[in-house]
C-alpha cells in the first residue's frame, strides 16, 4: 500500500458519498447517468467476485463490499426511487452502452492474464469496462452543457481516483522488482484520459470559487 493508492481509494469512496448524498439525500438524479451507474455496478460485481475466495487483505475485502453495496444502492434508487425517477432524464441518458460492453467482453476473453482461468477473463472484462464506463455520464453532461455543483465534484473525485492509481502504478513499478500490470496500466490511462476535458473545465470553473457550476461547451 502506498499513499497514491490510499488517496485513490479515498477519492473513490468520496465520489460514492457525493453521489449517494445527491441521489439518496437530495432525492435527485438530475444530470446523473443511470447507464454509467449500471456499468459501474457490473464492473464491481464482476471484478470483486473473488470476495468468495480471496481474503488476502481485510482493507480490500471491506472496500469491495462497500463499492458493490454503494453501486447497487445507487442503481436501485435511480430505478425505483419515486423522486429520483422523476428527476432522471432517460432520453438524454442515451449513450449506446452495448457498443461498450460487447467489445470489452471480447477483449476480456482474448486479452487477460491467464487464458485458462474464467475469473481472469471476467476480471479483464471488468478492467476494460471501467475504463469506458464514465462515457455515458460525460455524454450526458456534454448534452446538458451545465453541470450542477455536486455532480461536478462527484465526477471529479471519480476521475481523480484512477489518476491517483496511475501514480500508484508508477510508484510500484519503480519500487517493486518485476512488477508489471500492463492491462490495468493501459486501461487506467484510457480511463483518465477520458476525463481530461472535464478536468480542464472543472478547474476553469472552480478556480473562481468551489461552488460555481461547470460549463461544458
Amino acid at each position: 500500500m502506498n499513499i497514491f493508492r490510499f488517496l485513490g481509494d479515498m477519492s473513490h469512496i468520496l465520489s460514492f458519498l457525493l453521489l449517494l448524498h445527491k441521489i439518496v439525500g437530495g432525492k435527485s438524479a438530475a444530470g446523473i447517468s443511470l447507464r454509467t451507474a449500471e456499468m459501474y455496478a457490473i464492473v464491481f460485481c464482476t471484478r470483486y467476485i473473488d470476495l468468495l475466495w480471496n481474503f488476502a487483505s481485510l482493507y480490500n475485502y471491506l472496500l469491495k463490499l462497500l463499492f458493490i453495496g454503494a453501486s447497487l444502492t445507487i442503481v436501485y434508487f435511480m430505478r425505483y426511487g419515486p423522486s429520483q425517477k422523476a428527476t432522471y432524464n432517460a432520453d438524454e441518458d442515451a449513450f449506446p452502452v452495448q457498443y461498450l460492453i460487447a467489445p470489452c467482453a471480447v477483449l476480456g476473453v482474448l486479452i487477460n492474464q491467464d487464458h485458462s482461468s474464467p475469473f481472469e477473463m471476467v476480471w479483464a472484462f471488468s478492467i476494460y469496462l471501467e475504463a469506458v464506463a464514465i462515457l455515458p455520464q460525460l455524454f450526458l453532461l456534454q448534452k446538458q452543457g451545465e453541470v450542477e455543483n455536486l455532480t461536478s465534484h462527484y465526477v471529479f473525485a471519480l476521475g481523480a481516483y484512477r489518476a491517483l492509481y496511475l501514480l500508484n502504478w508508477m510508484f510500484r513499478f519503480m519500487t517493486e522488482p518485476d512488477y508489471q500490470q500492463r492491462i490495468v496500466w493501459l486501461s487506467g490511462l484510457v480511463q483518465t484520459a477520458l476525463y481530461c476535458d472535464f478536468f480542464y473545465h472543472y478547474y476553469q470553473s472552480k478556480k473562481g470559487g468551489l461552488n460555481k457550476s461547470v460549463k461544458l461547451p
Binding site: 473513490h12 473473488d50 480490500n60 476480471w123 500490470q181
Partner: peptide, 10 residues
Amino acid sequence: EVALHAHDEL
C-alpha cells in the same frame, strides 16, 4: 508468475 499479476488492488 502469480506475484506479477496478483490482484492485490481494488
